[in-house]
């Protein structure tokens, strides 16, 4: 029941959107897009690890070899 992950992902999401708007104000559109992309990739890494853990557990519980 680890709830930290949800807060981490939400925090990263908010931070990337803030960086995006800041960089857009500064006139650097491309860097803003890359910053958003990096944020999404970090969150995706965390979620994929959790998905892997879940699928391994389901495989062991339901004999889905």
């Amino acid at each position: 029941m680890s709830i930290e992950l949800i807060f981490q992902i939400a925090g990263i999401g908010i931070l990337t959107s803030i960086f995006h708007t800041m960089l857009k104000q500064a006139g650097k559109e491309d860097i803003a897009f890359i910053a958003t992309l990096a944020g999404v990739c970090i969150c995706l890494l965390m979620v994929v690890q959790l998905i892997g853990e879940l699928l391994i557990k389901v495989k062991s519980v339901f004999f889905l070899s």
């Binding site: 029941m1 680890s2 709830i3 992950l5 949800i6 807060f7 992902i9 939400a10 990263i12 999401g13 908010i14 990337t16 959107s17 995006h20 958003t36 944020g39 999404v40 969150c43 995706l44 965390m46 979620v47 959790l50 998905i51 853990e53 879940l54 557990k57 389901v58 519980v61």
Partner: peptide, 30 residues
């Protein structure tokens, strides 16, 4: 959190809702 993040960027909102579902599902599977 998913609704809050959704209007800023949609990708991470999907990830937040997916992470929440995963945590609850992990608890249920145990």
């Amino acid at each position: 959190l998913a609704v809050y993040v959704k209007e800023r960027n949609k990708e991470i909102a999907v990830l937040v809702s997916m992470a929440t579902g995963l945590i609850i599902f992990l608890f249920a599977v145990s």
